[in-house]
C-alpha cells in the first residue's frame, strides 16, 4: 500500500443509499397493495383532465385507498404548482383538493 493511498477517497458507503431507496419504494408499494387495478389508469386519465386547466406533473397526483371499519376511502390529492396562476385567474399556492368517495 502506498502512502498516497491515504489521500484517496474511501469507497462510498452505498448501503445507506440502498436502505433509503428501499424504505421509500417499499412504503409506496405497500400503500397501493391490494388496491383496485384501475387506479394507475384512473390516475393517468385524471392527469389528462387536470392538464387542460393546470400544468401539473404526474407526481403531483397521489391516490390512496384506506380501509377502516368495513368501508373503503379513496383519497385523491392534487398538488397545484407554486406561484403560477391556476386556470380561470384563481391563484392558489400549493392548493390541495381532496375528494372523498365512500
Amino acid at each position: 500500500m502506498g502512502i498516497l493511498d491515504f489521500l484517496k477517497r474511501k469507497p462510498e458507503a452505498t448501503a445507506s443509499v440502498a436502505r433509503e431507496r428501499l424504505r421509500i419504494i417499499v412504503a409506496q408499494e405497500r400503500s397501493t397493495r391490494g388496491a383496485p387495478d384501475y387506479l394507475p389508469m384512473m390516475r393517468n386519465e385524471l392527469l389528462e383532465v387536470i392538464k387542460k386547466y393546470v400544468q401539473v406533473d404526474i407526481d403531483a397526483i397521489s391516490i390512496n385507498v384506506e380501509r377502516d371499519s368495513g368501508q373503503e376511502i379513496l383519497e385523491l390529492s392534487v398538488t397545484l404548482p407554486e406561484g403560477k396562476p391556476a386556470a380561470k385567474g384563481e391563484t392558489r399556492d400549493e392548493a390541495k383538493d381532496k375528494t372523498r368517495t365512500g
Binding site: A13, T14, S16, A18
Partner: peptide, 17 residues
C-alpha cells in the same frame, strides 16, 4: 462488506421488511 457500509445489514433488511 456490511462493516464498511457496502452491504445492507441484517438490521436494515429486518427494518425495511
Amino acid at each position: 462488506r456490511v462493516a464498511i457500509g457496502e452491504m445492507l445489514s441484517v438490521k436494515d433488511v429486518e427494518e425495511i421488511l
